[in-house]
Design a protein around this nucleic acid. Structure first.
Length: 429
RNA sequence: GGAGAGGUGGGUGAGUGGCUGAAACCAACGGUUUGCUAAACCGUCAUACUGGGAUAACUGGUAUCGAGGGUUCGAAUCCCUCCCUCUCCGCCA
C-alpha cells in the first residue's frame, strides 16, 4: 500500500510510476475518495464535538435537578445526523481502501524503465570451471530432467498426476532423498553461515495474512483456498514469515531481523496452461527455502544486495552456473520496488531458468500488514519497516539444473559434493 | 463434536450508564540521592485521523477498552451478532 500523503502531494509522479510498472491503478479514484473523506470528517467531527459538549451540560443539569428536555431533544437530531454521516464516511473509507489496495508499489529509482523481460539488465554471471553447454560441449546428447527422472525412477510425474493432477510432482527413491537433502543443505547454510533465524511456518494462512503481503485482493485466482475454513494454502513462505509481525511494533534492537524457512508452496497458475508445463518448469506444488528480512529503511537496499549474495553462495557451493538480472520496471512484480532474478543454467534445454527472485518491498507490505519498528530506542516513534524476501531457493528449478548439469556421458547423475553428506550417496544410476 | 471461562493501554489488572484515555502495580524512559551495584524517591509514560500553524515548535478537535451492530441526549459499562483465546470431556495423528 502506498502512502496516501505521497499520492496526495505528488499525484503525477505516482501516475507515471504506475505506468512504468505496466500496471493499472486508479489514482483519480483514490484522490476523489480522499477529498470526500476529509470533507465528511470535518463536518461530522464538528457535530460530535457539539454532542459531547451538550451531553456534559445535560449531565450537569440533571445533577442540579434542572430541566434538560430542550437539550435532549436537540441532541436527538444531532445524533441522527451523526449516524447518517458516519455511515457515509464508512462507505467512503471502504472505497478509498479498496482503491488504495489496488495501486502497485512504485519501482526504486535504480530500476531500469522497461516494458518486458527484454529490458531486464544483466548484472553478473558465474560459472564453475566445467559447465556443459557453456565452457564445454556435451560428448553425447543430453537428457533433460524429465528423461533423467524417468530413467532412474526418481521423479514420477505420471503418478503424481494420478494422485493430484498434473503439476504435482512425485519424488521417489533417491529423488526424494535428494530433494530433502537439498532443503536441509540450504537451510543449514543460511542458518549457520549467513545468520538467518530458522522458521518452520504453517502452510495455510488466513485472509488478513494474504492481504498483508499483497497476494490479495489481486491474486486470488492464483491461490488454493479452503473455503470451509476461509484459509489459503501459501504460495510462498514469504506470506507466513512476513506476517509473523503483522500489527506489531518491533524493538529497536530487533531490526534488522533475518529469517529463513522451508515451506511447500502452492500455486494454481490459473491461465498459464500450455506455457512450459512439462516436468518441473511450472508446477502447482513445489518446495522452497525462503529468506525474509525486516530492515531499517536506510539500510534496506544494502540488505537486498546482501540477500542476493547469500542466495548466490548456495549456487556456488552447488556449482551450478547462474546469472543475476535486475528486473526492469515493467517486469517487477506488483508489491516489489526492486527485484533481482537469479537464473540457473539448464543445459539440456539450453536455457536459463528462474530459480530465485529477491525483492525489496520497501514499506509497501509493512503498510498493509502494519509492521513497524522503533528506530531509536523504546521511546521513539514507530515507523514502518522495510520488508525484503528472496527464494533461497526453489528446489524444483534447482533440481532441473542439478540433474542436467551433473549428468555423466553414461546418463548417471553425480550428487553435488556438498549434498553428499546430506543424501548419504554420491551417484545415482 | 459437547460443556464452560474469558478478551481493557508494553504486561498484570481495577472499573456495571455521565468529571474514565481509562485507577493501581510492574516494565520502560528521564532525573535526584548514593563510594560502586542495588534500593529509595520524583517525573514522563498510547495510537491514529483531522484542523490551525511554515510540510516547525506548539495547539484545537475526533476516535479507539476483541470486531460490528443496537438501546440512550450520553456506552469500557446494558442488548444482539460475529471473531479469537483458554480449560475440561470426546475423537484423532
Amino acid at each position: 500500500m502506498l502512502d496516501l500523503k505521497r499520492i496526495r502531494e505528488q499525484p503525477d509522479a505516482v501516475r507515471q510510476a504506475i505506468r512504468n510498472k505496466n500496471e493499472k491503478g486508479d489514482v483519480e479514484a483514490v484522490l476523489a475518495q480522499d477529498t470526500r473523506r476529509r470533507e465528511i470528517i470535518a463536518e461530522v467531527e464538528q457535530l460530535k464535538n457539539t454532542r459531547n459538549v451538550v451531553s456534559q451540560d445535560i449531565a450537569r443539569l440533571k445533577k442540579e435537578k434542572q430541566d434538560a428536555d430542550a437539550q435532549i431533544a436537540e441532541m436527538k437530531v444531532v445524533s441522527d445526523t451523526i449516524k447518517r454521516m458516519d455511515e457515509e464516511l464508512r462507505d467512503v473509507e471502504g472505497a478509498l481502501r479498496d482503491a488504495l489496495l489496488l495501486l502497485p508499489n512504485l519501482a526504486h529509482e535504480s530500476v531500469p524503465v522497461g516494458a518486458s523481460d527484454a529490458d531486464n539488465a544483466d548484472v553478473r554471471a558465474w560459472t564453475p570451471d566445467k559447465a556443459i553447454g557453456l565452457t564445454e560441449e556435451p560428448e553425447v546428447p543430453l537428457l533433460d530432467h524429465i528423461e533423467l527422472g524417468k530413467k532412474h525412477r526418481i521423479l514420477d510425474f505420471d503418478r503424481g498426476a494420478k494422485l493430484s493432477g498434473s503439476g504435482f510432482p512425485l519424488y521417489t527413491g533417491e529423488g526424494a532423498t535428494l530433494e530433502r537433502a537439498l532443503i536441509n543443505f540450504m537451510i543449514d547454510v543460511h542458518r549457520r553461515d549467513h545468520g538467518y533465524r530458522e522458521v518452520f511456518p504453517p502452510f495455510v494462512v488466513n485472509t488478513e495474512s494474504m492481504y498483508g503481503t499483497g497476494q490479495l485482493p489481486k491474486m486470488s485466482e492464483d491461490m488454493y483456498r479452503c473455503a470451509e475454513d476461509d484459509l489459503y494454502l501459501i504460495p510462498t513462505a514469504e506470506v507466513p514469515i512476513t506476517n509473523m509481525y503483522r500489527d506489531e511494533i518491533l524493538d529497536t534492537d530487533m531490526v534488522p531481523a533475518r529469517f529463513c524457512g522451508y515451506s511447500a508452496c502452492f500455486r494454481r497458475e490459473a491461465g498459464s496452461y500450455g506455457k512450459q508445463t512439462k516436468g518441473f518448469l511450472r508446477v502447482h506444488q513445489f518446495n522452497k527455502v525462503e529468506l525474509v528480512k525486516f530492515a531499517r529503511p536506510e539500510e534496506s537496499y544494502d540488505e537486498l544486495e546482501a540477500l542476493v549474495v547469500d542466495v548466490e553462495r548456495i549456487l556456488k557451493l552447488l556449482e551450478i552456473p547462474y546469472r543475476v538480472r535486475l528486473l526492469c520496471t515493467g517486469d517487477t512484480s506488483f508489491s516489489s520496488a526492486k527485484t533481482y532474478d537469479l537464473d540457473v543454467w539448464a543445459p539440456a534445454e539450453k536455457a536459463w531458468r528462474e530459480a530465485s527472485s529477491c525483492s525489496n518491498f520497501e514499506d509497501f507490505q509493512a503498510r498493509r500488514a502494519n509492521i513497524r519498528y522503533r528506530p531509536d530506542g523504546p521511546k521513539s516513534k514507530p515507523e514502518f519497516v522495510h520488508t525484503l524476501n528472496g527464494s533461497g531457493l526453489a528446489t524444483s528449478r534447482l533440481m532441473v539444473a542439478i540433474l542436467e548439469n551433473y549428468q555423466t556421458p553414461e546418463g548417471k547423475i553425480i550428487v553435488p559434493e556438498v549434498l553428499q553428506p546430506y543424501a548419504g550417496f554420491s551417484l545415482i544410476g
